[in-house]
């Protein structure tokens, strides 16, 4: 069983964000990065499937040189090889462009399962895996909590709304978007980190993937980025000690009347 897992590098969850001068995205200087949360669970799901069924786990990341650190992290945790999709033409992809790029790379490498997290913490499209499935002509399932191989296919547990779940059986190859929290993430061991140094990371650009400008052209465009307008007037209470606590309790009692 060969599994390709897509790992997006995103700014750390607690990053202080600043808007760029053109107000089209954030300033990327001074940021530290991490693996997108649900992608980390997709990687763990891939590693566990390999431990159970044998095969290979390939860690794929799309982005500039810095994204090699997430590929290396995945290799240290147990992935076998890396695919790094890097090209100046990939700089401002929307979900469709990213999916087209990932689909081209996944197709050229071959796979039984293509895994992504269900949503990125930055753009938050929640679409890339599903679009890739369509472009590859493959079945998919989203918001997956569990994967069980069944004959030549796979049975996955999907999360639905309002506390419902559903098992769905699909043929392979297929594309699956993974929910956060479905397994326990492993850490890279020292041995894993050493072993990762010998593992291959293959770089692929737009030409190698046969991607033209028309395919990568955005189908949705950000006109402007801004801090959200407050929908409520928030009363900020200064301080953090007993005085602030007393002020809050007084307001909750006399203004909001909750006590």
């Amino acid at each position: 069983m060969k599994i390709i897992v897509c790992l997006k590098q995103v700014p750390k969850n607690d990053s202080i964000l600043r808007i760029n001068d053109a107000a089209t995205w954030i300033q990327d200087r001074d940021l530290t990065y991490e693996i997108n949360e649900s992608d980390a669970y997709a990687l763990e799901a891939a590693l566990q499937l390999k431990e159970k069924n044998g095969g290979e786990v390939v860690a794929l990341s799309l982005g500039p040189a810095r994204v090699q650190s997430v590929i290396k992290e995945a290799l240290a945790r147990g992935a076998d090889r890396g695919l790094h999709l890097e090209d100046a033409a990939f700089d401002n992809l929307d979900a469709f462009g990213a999916a087209a790029t990932i689909a081209a790379a996944a197709k050229s490498d071959g796979f039984d399962l293509l895994l992504t997290g269900l949503q990125s913490d930055d753009h938050g499209y929640a679409q890339t895996g599903v679009i890739a499935a369509e472009l590859l002509g493959l079945p998919h399932a989203t918001i997956v909590m569990d994967l069980q191989t069944e004959g030549s296919g796979i049975k996955v547990k999907r999360e639905l709304e309002a506390g419902f779940f559903q098992w769905v059986t699909l043929p392979l190859p297929g594309v699956f978007t993974i929910q956060s929290g479905i397994n326990t993430l492993r850490y890279a061991t020292l041995k894993g980190i050493m072993a990762a140094k010998k593992k291959e990371i293959k770089k692929l650009d737009a030409a190698a993937l046969g991607l033209d400008a028309a395919t990568l052209a955005p189908k949705q465009q950000i006109k402007r980025v801004y801090f959200p307008q407050k929908s409520k007037q928030t009363q900020m209470i200064e301080g953090t000690g007993a005085a602030a606590a007393a002020t809050l309790v007084e307001k909750l009692k006399n203004e909001a009347r909750v006590f």
């Binding site: 700014p11 964000l17 808007i19 954030i26 913490d121 930055d122 753009h123 938050g124 950000i222 006109k223 402007r224 980025v225 801004y226 801090f227 959200p228």
Partner: peptide, 9 residues
């Protein structure tokens, strides 16, 4: 975007 920290038009 960014889990609600920013808005985009």
């Amino acid at each position: 975007i960014f889990q609600g920290k920013l808005s985009a038009d």
